[in-house]
Design a protein around this nucleic acid. Structure first.
Length: 838
DNA sequence: TTATTCACTTAGAAAGCCCCCC
DNA sequence: GGGGGGCTTTCTAAGTGAATAA
């Protein structure tokens, strides 16, 4: 098999190797980092200040401003007794071109250039006037309580939805008149085409001209959000135990205990001390608040297993329900949800994404999140803000409740929002991934990533030059850009103390990289979702030198590597290089570029499966580049073993076929040494063991068939076969045993096929070799995929037009690589032709 | 300049479902 | 035909980055 080298950035192949190195150490899918202590934080602050002083001296020669800062720093040094250190002024030779991946060659789509020019011509005044409109439009409105009652609504949903599209169309026409004044002529053109398109079932927004994107909709109708059902207390015989005794709890406290009891089998949370501590604190609080007869004092005395067992029993019962029952339950659920599933955006029916309000539960923060396990309380309508069209019917809140607010803001895409209590994060209800709004922003994102190709050469030239800049801030920025560009690192915003300690490029700390001369850098840190990023790479000598400076004493563990940089500064600079450029654009660009390069390795004359395999391989390269990981499935090793067994069985078949050839023509032993060659992984002992298994299997098979046939005869009121018949069938077993005996002792295998020839046997060996090869490839593929998640890059980073173009070019059905949801999400890319390039 | 807010994208885990093999 | 494995979908946590407030 040809060994294909990666063309990922600096050292994609190395990265695959590096991934393998640490993969085995992962526990529960999460790496736990060492917690920063308060002292460390204090140290960090002092360190930061010291660093500023160091650099201000270094930069002193360049400007008036820096002279002042030098004075200031010297003053401070005197005061705080801190030594200043000079910046290393010797330079290494730069220009290690190998470190850069090949310069991309591409043809630029005329459409893209047009769009870009149009964007440029969008004046500031226009933006301001839209903003002004936006602020005026955010008005609080009174809620309408005179809506139809809910039950009748449920029954008439379908009718209602059909009627609505007609209604909305009428409304839209009315509204157009009043809006005309506000729209510029281009937008008006969009309107016209929109209106004509409304009659069509599938609205192809990508065939229309798009506005600047500030106004997200003109009319918006929806039915609000679906609240989770109220808590149903457990049967009285199900009680948690405290100090070994069952205790009764008020429903509210019982619910919280149940949240913990329900997840007893998921060790990664239940065994986590922070999770336990946070849960227990909130559980105690709930008990106190609800005047529970027993207020648990120690977590250790709590036993939630009765609850756990009850939930498991319920699950089992649900699973064992008949098909009809299950169908009925699903239908009821669907009917309840139907009205929330869709909304009308500018009169067109669109799918809503997460219309369900998140149910209460325990916050499952990842990694070392300090708040993991805390109680996520039930959300009430009074917390929820509804965003809806001005003239639309306002959905009624659940009986006896009110919405927090009803807004009519058409500059945003959310339908509802609320604040979650644990981290005070804002939650939104958005449209689904397949909606026109999401599609438009996806297209925009990929076009931006493609646009970067126009600028990338100059950007690289510039940051390479700036790697040697005298201003520390500039040098840090250039180094960070190098890392983001080559290793697809995330920007790395700063995080709070009450969050998990994870980092990205700008927030890298002293301990996250280690340097070994001449130019090897080892990255080892926890990134988004506390997923470990480990990569050993060779970098540009100047980058190595810079990193060494950024790590220089007095910096130590806990100190920022890029103490002069943050994401805001970095992105400001990036925008000045290309409109709309930010750190994340590099990641998209890098991923799609890698994919397009990797797809070029697809074999042209191979089978569809082989082509799909090549696609997945390319996909995996992107996933590795972006460090998209998943936990190894529980069944992985069993799966691997099974494939291995199949390979061995095939190898054994091969051995038998060879023996059959030699049995036909013993003279061939000398002229064809390949027929007596040893086969790897197989020895005599294994063969004997395998033969035993084969005999057992055959025995079971015959017996099962006999039983089944008899059952059939009985059901047809016919006489079943006597046991003697089975004996007769089982004679085959003896024949097999005899065959194996001759094979093992004399090396003879008689082929049972009539008219068998050596040519035919050779052909069979060839086919078996092919199957072994396929199996091995599958095994390698599976093993390499065990910790790599391909989905994330497919959904978020790889331009779907690459996939559609690839399918067209290689004659592969899109269904082989995109699921239904993905095809919906990327409908805008479906008509991409084979010659399209990223 | 820095911190906060807001709106959105990106992410892995868990749940759900479907299909293949015994 | 049913049980389980694996693929797909759903869920919601955790990022990014622009705008705004202090």
């Amino acid at each position: 098999m040809k060994d294909k080298k990666l063309e990922l950035g600096v050292s994609g192949e190395k990265m695959v190797e590096n991934r393998e190195k640490y993969v085995g150490n992962k526990e529960n899918g999460i790496y736990v980092s060492t917690m920063r202590t308060k002292e460390k934080q204090e140290e960090k602050k002092v360190g930061k200040r010291m660093k500023r002083i160091v650099e201000s001296e270094e930069e002193s020669s360049s400007s008036e401003k820096t002279k002042k800062s030098l004075k200031k720093s010297k003053k401070m040094n005197k005061k705080e007794n801190i030594k200043t250190i000079e910046c290393d002024s010797e330079y290494f030779n730069t220009g290690n071109e190998n470190l850069y991946r090949e310069k991309p060659t591409f043809t630029l789509d005329q459409n893209m250039i047009n769009n870009y020019e149009k964007n440029k011509s969008m004046t500031k005044e226009m933006v301001n006037s839209i903003r002004e409109k936006k602020s005026k439009k955010i008005l609080k409105s009174k809620q309408s309580n005179n809506l139809k009652n809910e039950t009748s609504e449920n029954i008439e949903i379908k009718k209602e939805i059909d009627e609505k599209s007609i209604k909305t169309e009428k409304k839209l026409k009315k509204k157009h008149k009043s809006q005309e004044k506000e729209l510029n002529s281009e937008e008006l053109k969009n309107e016209e085409s929109l209106r004509s398109k409304e009659e069509e079932e599938d609205y192809k927004w990508w065939e229309q001209q798009q506005g600047d994107g500030t106004i997200k909709w003109k009319t918006l109708e929806h039915n609000g959000v679906l609240f989770p059902p109220p808590y149903e207390p457990l049967p009285s015989y199900v009680k948690m135990k405290y100090k070994g005794e069952p205790i009764s709890l008020p429903p509210e406290a019982e619910e919280v205990a149940g949240f913990f009891g329900a997840i007893l089998s998921s060790e990664q949370y239940v065994k986590n001390p922070t999770f336990q501590k946070n849960f227990f604190h909130d559980f105690q609080e709930t008990c106190k608040k609800t005047n529970a007869p027993v207020i648990p004092e120690k977590f250790e005395y709590c036993d939630f297993t009765p609850m756990f067992e009850y939930f498991e029993k319920k699950k089992e019962e649900k699973k064992n329900k008949s098909k009809e029952e299950k169908k009925k339950i699903k239908e009821e659920k669907d009917a309840l949800e139907e009205k929330y599933k869709y909304c009308f955006l500018d009169g067109r029916k669109e799918k809503v994404g997460n219309f369900r309000i998140e149910p209460p539960g325990l916050f499952r923060g990842r990694g070392d999140h300090p708040k993991t396990g805390k109680l996520k309380t039930r959300v009430v309508p009074e917390q929820v803000i509804i965003n809806i069209g001005k003239d639309s019917v306002i959905p009624s809140p659940p009986p006896g409740h009110n919405w927090k607010e009803v807004r009519h803001d058409n500059t945003v895409t959310w339908l509802a929002t609320w604040n979650e209590n644990v981290n005070n994060n804002v939650k939104y209800v958005f449209l689904s991934a397949g909606s026109s709004l999401k599609g438009q922003s996806d297209l925009k994102k990929y076009e931006k990533a493609r646009e970067l190709k126009l600028y990338i050469d100059n950007i690289r030239k510039q940051y390479r030059k700036e790697l040697e800049d005298k201003l520390m801030e500039v040098r840090q920025r250039a180094t960070a850009m190098y890392l983001i560009d080559l290793f697809a690192l995330r920007a790395g915003n700063e995080k709070g103390e009450d969050e998990a300690d994870t980092v990205g490029c700008c927030s890298l700390r002293y301990e996250h990289i280690s340097l070994s001369p001449p130019n090897t850098v080892v990255f080892d840190f926890l990134g988004k979702d506390s997923i470990r990023y480990y990569n050993e790479v060779q970098v540009d000598p100047q980058v190595f030198k810079n990193l060494k400076i950024f790590k220089r004493s007095p910096k130590t563990e806990g100190d920022m590597l890029f103490d002069r940089l943050n994401t805001s500064k970095l992105n400001n600079h990036l925008t000045s290089l290309m409109p709309g450029l930010s750190a994340k654009v590099f990641r998209t660009h890098n991923a799609s570029y890698t994919m397009s390069e990797q797809l070029k390795n697809t074999p042209k004359d191979a089978s569809i499966s082989d082509k799909v395999l090549a696609y997945n391989r390319a996909n995996r390269m992107v996933a590795i580049l972006c460090n998209h990981q998943r936990t190894i499935s529980k069944t992985h090793s069993a799966q691997m073993e099974r494939i291995e067994d199949k390979i061995l069985a095939l190898k054994y078949q091969k051995i038998r076929l060879r023996k059959a050839i030699l049995t036909l023509d013993p003279k061939l032993e000398k002229s064809r040494p390949d027929l007596s060659e040893a086969v790897s992984d197989i020895d005599e002992d294994w063969i004997k063991e395998h033969q035993k298994v084969l005999i057992e299997k055959e025995y079971d098979k015959i017996k099962r068939k006999f039983q089944k046939d008899n059952e059939k005869l009985i059901s047809q009121n016919e006489t079943p076969m006597p046991e003697s018949r089975l004996e007769k069938f089982l004679e085959k077993i003896n024949e097999m045993k005899e065959e194996f005996k001759i094979e093992n002792e004399k090396g003879r295998v008689e082929s049972k096929t009539r008219g068998i020839t050596i040519e035919k046997l050779d052909l069979q060996i060839k086919k078996i070799n092919e199957r072994i090869h396929q199996m091995k490839a599958l095994m390698i593929d599976k093993d390499q995929n065990k910790t790599t998640a391909l989905g994330t890059s497919k959904i978020n980073y790889i331009d779907p037009r690459l996939t559609y173009a690839w399918c067209a070019k290689y004659g592969v059905n899109i269904e082989r690589v995109f699921t239904k949801t993905l095809r919906e999400k990327f409908a805008w890319a479906a008509s991409t032709t084979a010659d399209w390039e990223f």
